[in-house]
């Protein structure tokens, strides 16, 4: 039985002016060293990185930071949200990452994102290679093949919490520990109405970078890619196709892992992440 304890993670809020409006953003962090800025998946929040921020082997070398995107987790939507339909775009996502990095005075952080986060780090490496010392794309691909009508995620006759969790549950590997599987799904059940769908606008429609990934200069911004073998949304084949189009990209398939490696099976994920983090540390 585990003993009661206080985790080393601290959480705070910042006020950011973005797109002409004030945004109250929540972030958590733990550790000291090279800044490691973590980007959560669509429709979820920064709690996905809870294990990483509790891992002393990581936090002894890295300052691990995870923020909740506006409209997600403990970050608020902007005033007037009640009359707005949330829709994530590439430009907004990049603006957000750059603004948070600046607000926290991060010196060329390692930016690690999963799913939509894995997509945006490709845009970041292409458009702002000086903003990161390298990027890590988890479940990362230049584009994916949409496999269902995302309108099902936001309807008055289908419970949003149930359908959001139900649609992503199959993206988790069957070998994931039950505790972590259901924690991951709980985060999805807590998403605001229409938010997962709004994120997927970027992921499945607007954020296609496949025709431009070849323009990424990995000499300026190295790219590491890790994809779980059970992910059929961003499959290993899709990541491989993307990696093949980026000269110098380093890609590995994670066995026994699905779409949420850091959240669904943190211990197994560490076996794949640590060699990458060690390589980045040695190069820094």
């Amino acid at each position: 039985m585990r003993k009661s304890m206080i985790e080393p993670i601290t959480g705070r809020y910042m006020q950011l002016e973005l797109w002409g409006a004030s945004h109250r953003i929540y972030w958590e962090e733990s550790g000291q060293g090279i800044p490691l800025l973590c980007l959560h998946t669509a429709g979820s929040d920064g709690r996905q990185f809870r294990a990483l921020m509790n891992d002393e082997e990581v936090t002894a070398q890295y300052r691990v930071i995870a923020f909740d995107m506006p409209w997600h987790g403990k970050s608020s939507p902007p005033a007037g949200w009640e009359a707005e339909t949330y829709e994530l775009t590439t430009r907004k996502y990049l603006d957000l990452i750059l603004a948070i990095s600046e607000a926290l005075e991060l010196d060329r952080p390692v930016v690690m994102g999963c799913s939509i986060g894995g997509r945006i780090v490709l845009h970041l490496a292409r458009e702002h290679p000086d903003a990161a010392r390298c990027v890590i794309g988890l479940q990362s691909a230049g584009m994916i093949n949409p496999y269902y009508d995302i309108d099902w995620l936001y309807r008055p006759d289908v419970h949003g919490a149930h359908v959001c969790a139900g649609m992503v549950s199959g993206l988790i590997a069957p070998t994931a520990p039950g505790e972590h599987r259901w924690e991951t799904l709980w985060h999805y059940m807590q998403g605001g109405p229409g938010i997962f769908k709004g994120d997927l606008h970027f992921y499945t429609v607007e954020g296609d970078i496949m025709d431009h990934v070849g323009e990424i200069d990995t000499a300026k911004c190295p790219i590491y890619m890790l994809t779980g073998e059970y992910d059929f949304s961003c499959s290993p084949e899709m990541s491989q196709t993307t990696a093949d189009a980026i000269e110098g990209a380093k890609f590995k398939v994670m066995e026994g892992m699905g779409h949420f490696p850091m959240s669904e099976h943190p211990e197994a994920f560490k076996d794949y992440l640590m060699p990458v983090l060690d390589e980045i540390r040695d190069a820094s």
Partner: peptide
């Protein structure tokens, strides 16, 4: 332990 693509009905 179902293989990838057989582990879930949506998959």
């Amino acid at each position: 332990v179902p293989a990838p693509t057989f582990h879930d009905i949506i998959a």
